[in-house]
Design a protein around this nucleic acid. Sequence first.
RNA 1: GGGGGCAUAGCUCAGUUGGGAGAGCAUCGCACUGGCAGUGCGAAGGUCAGGAGUUCAAGUCUCCUUGCCUCCA
Length: 919
Amino acid sequence: MARPADAHAIRSAFLSFFEERGHAAVPSSPLVPFDDPTLLFVNAGMVQFKDVFTGRDKRDYTRATSAQRCLRAGGKHNDLDNVGFTPRHHTLFEMLGNFSFGDYFKRDAIRWGWEFLTQVLELPAEKLVVSVFNGEGENAPFDQEAYDLWAEIIPKERIYAFDAKENFWQMGDTGPCGPCSEIHIWRGEGGAPPDGGKPGKGPAFEDDKYMELWNLVFMQYEKLASGEMTKLPAPSVDTGAGLERLAAVLEGVETNYETGLFVPIVDKVKALAGVSGHQGEREASYRVIADHARATAFLIADGVTPDQTGRPYVLRRIMRRAIRHATLVGLEDLFFHEVCDEVVNRFGEAYPELREAREVIAGAVKIEEEGFRRTLARGLRRVSKILAGLEAEGSKVFPVDEAADLYTSAGFPIDLTRVIAEENELTLDEAAVAEKLEAQKGESSFAGGGGSKVADVYFDIVNELGQGTAFLGYGATAGEATLKAIVIPAPEPAEGEPALEPTRVESAQAGQAVELIFDQSPFYGESGGQVGDTGALRAVDGGAVVTVTQTSKPTGGLHVHHGELAGGSIAVGQRFVLEVDVARRDAIRRNHSATHMLHHALRKVLGKHVAQKGSLVAPDRLRFDFSHARSVTREETRRIEAEVNAMVLANAPTGTAEMSLADAKQAGAIGLFGEKYGAEVRVVTIGEVETEAGEERSVELCGGTHVARAGDVGLFKIVAEGGVAQGVRRIEAMTGMGAVEWVQERAEVVDQVASDLRARDLGEVLGRLEKLHEELAARGREIDSLKRKLATGGGGSQASEVVEVEGGGKTVKLTARRIPVADPKIMREAADTLRDRMGSGVVVLAGERDGKANLLVATTKDLAKGKIVHAGKLAAALVVHVDGRGGGRPDMAQAGGPKVAGLDDVVAHAAEELAKQLA
RNA sequence: GGGGGCAUAGCUCAGUUGGGAGAGCAUCGCACUGGCAGUGCGAAGGUCAGGAGUUCAAGUCUCCUUGCCUCCA
């Protein structure tokens, strides 16, 4: 085999090498682990084989090889902050591996690892050193076998032995584990490492002089809960070699960023920034952006879009960090999508899923970058405001609380705050801010925790039965079966208490809540968005009846019937007749088939970027979440409804077929291909509509239950559309009689409205309504104008009573009056008018509103500014007559009180109180 | 799941002991100009997210609901 020409060629060379040695080349799994809530992202090559190692899953091969995309960001392994500043930390990386599931063991693993490095990659053998487990730190002995095998290949002084911390591996606290053997390359001076085999030397102690290339894990033990170690009957091998490191060695460069995997991406960023060559201190920023663009492109291709919780939040952090670094090197425009697109160009051949998702990636990245740049702009405004305040105070220290607050509530990066502060010759204690944030973290410690862990009891049952429940429900809604297991559900734990485990029993009595498992069942267990069936279970001997309120599928095809034992007693081994609630199931069928047709119509009307993000199929409605950046317009909604209803009317039969995943893809099936399916997948076809574009139909991977013909769906009606997250829309719809009733209800209301409006037909309704609105607004204006006239004395027919008040040698004009409308707005306007009429003077208005007394005192500006009259004080003095309180500014004050009868007194005493103020 | 924050004109936002709902941009009208750009003047546009409470008085204070932003797990 020829030496790989570049970094990308290493990948294919590796896979071919092991394929030639009988391995199945398995494609990389998506970054989101299937069915494993304990793991945020796939972070090692063996993740997709986890269940194969434990024996829970069987494959038709016993040796495999893969190039697996992995991500380390968020969670326990968080290297995010190091990325870009060190030679080898990455968020996304590729792990090359070969695996043996009870097939070959140490000899072949060691031999092939060595052969690939020295003969295919042609690495100098004298620079390679290896390590084995020395028997310390774990309840397992020195790995003599591995040592002896290595000794056949390389000189003994280049074989090191280290303790469990370095050379022992385990999947979890219990389960398969074993010693491992690592291959390192000497990077120091000279051809070979100088301190071969000496204690305290070697890769475990001199990390900077060696680089780990390959880790070979030999799974030969099983660790029990007691800590005891037992030997596995069929030992396995799990190996991993980082592609980026191999590339760096092969190309003879110092850092992974200088390999062919990164250079084109880094250069793309530099081109966008208008620079080239090494950028000194700023180089790290370009590396961060390149690294994060890789992670971003792959994550989005695997169905993750940035958001505020969980995996989507990790993606958001990665993206924002990249954009933050972009601002540091002066990239001000939207640019990140172009970098991600370059990733698609470079990695699309090895990972076709990137190419398929090209538009989706670009769209999601643009949206996020726009959003974050808005966040930054908002933050900058807040910072400027704070800076202005500090300048006024003459302070030279940026407040720690403000910086922390900017970060936690506005998402404004702390380091950016510091940079701006420094530009304004202010200091910011970043350590104090970090401390403050740490303290806040303590305050917001979360309650509860963990995902929904599947209770062990269900795994035990599957293992014991050897298989799950055989599902009869595609063809039937009733059937006979044997009761295989009874589980008593765990009671709800008290607040703050850990969840309790359900318990297995052999029999149960009337009145008990039970979960029943049969060898076969027509009941559909909740999965794939479709809700579980309900119905009844009757013992064949006539004794017991169980009402089933829910059917779930906690694991591996196990259909669990939840319900209550209505009468009699039951025991494992009994025969039952199982009857699904048929009307409910039929409603579910309609909604499930309609969901498929909706998905198809959405892709047709909105575009191929539409991908399922979530789905709920219930008897009364269906809900479908999908990726789409904008809201769906009314016109689009209309077209989508029309598409679906056209398919319904064509009334084509639905078809289901079992086929291989490859054949399903070939047939154009859509579905969540990232999920783990068995060798055979079920494909549901609905439609066969003749259109100008040819035949059209919905083809989807699906395990759900469907109608026999599209026409069974009946009327399809979208009843709601909205957003659930950035870039994700939700449509809710109804079918069958439910949809008919929904439409009828609406139509009745519209008819009623039309007749109330005296509209002759529907077209007239909107016109009438508009006219009504206009009329109402006109009347409102008229009323306001009349109120104003009343308040100011009715158009001058009654002469305004202006009196002159003397006091303290000054004379001030006063108008004091009762007014019939005491609307605050009207009173202000009236006071303005009266004030203007007097030129200079004081206005006191008193009136009743909603059973309360309101007064208003206003003075002209000259009196207020000259501190001759204070409206607020005058109002306070007058309001005692209505037992109220009040106040206001010198030129305008309002007051009020409950004693309406005192209003005349207010007017009567106005002159007197004003005189007191003047004096 | 927990914490912090926001919701005011079509858009971006101001509104500081609770006491006249504002600015800029956009829209429309008028004027200047041969036309456009532009400038000037003017107008329209608001259930201050929704609901309850405190108060004589709530955009402003309290509580609830909804939506969004943001940090953390």
